[in-house]
């Protein structure tokens, strides 16, 4: 990718990326009740990274985020498939989810849900796939 030299963009990106990333995490967890979820969260996170790419260059981003995004994809798939197969251990059909309610102090009533694990898988796959695509294309030539 072209090396850009844009001070305003670079400075703004430093702040905005964190805001977007934080927002993407919020969106991810909100997903079960409000608009959001693994797809949107994942896409937003990758959007943040794409912004980084545009502001800096691909080498900088690889040093900031030294992940192999193909592995992120694989871990995500494993998460989703593992959660799906988890029901089989309890003699339930595949993809049977389980949930319960807990009352931790300070946070109030909340539910614990295995569907979140599945959604984490979706999140990771979306981030992994998007970044693999962008990085691969960006790095060629």
């Amino acid at each position: 990718m072209m090396k850009t030299n844009n001070v305003i963009l670079e400075t703004a990106t430093k702040v905005i990326v964190f805001i977007i990333l934080l927002f993407s995490v919020y969106m991810f967890f909100a997903g079960h009740y409000e608009p959001g979820g693994g797809f949107i969260g994942g896409l937003m996170a990758s959007g943040a990274i794409v912004l980084l790419l545009i502001a800096y260059d691909i080498k900088t981003v690889t040093t900031i985020l030294p992940f192999d995004f193909k592995k992120v994809t694989a871990v995500g798939l494993l998460f989703a498939a593992g959660t799906a197969a988890g029901g089989l251990l309890f003699d339930k059909p595949m993809l049977t989810h389980w949930f319960t309610y807990v009352n931790p102090p300070l946070l109030g009533k909340m539910s614990l849900h295995t569907a979140v694990l599945f959604d984490i898988g979706v999140f990771l796959v979306v981030v992994g796939v998007t970044m693999t695509i962008i990085q691969t294309i960006g790095e060629s030539e």
Binding site: F39, L43, V126, V129, I133, T136, I137
Partner: peptide
Amino acid sequence: ILTAIVIAFGITALFLV
């Protein structure tokens, strides 16, 4: 549609490459 949007993105990317 949500499923379709994401798939369409993947396919478009593949086509482009």
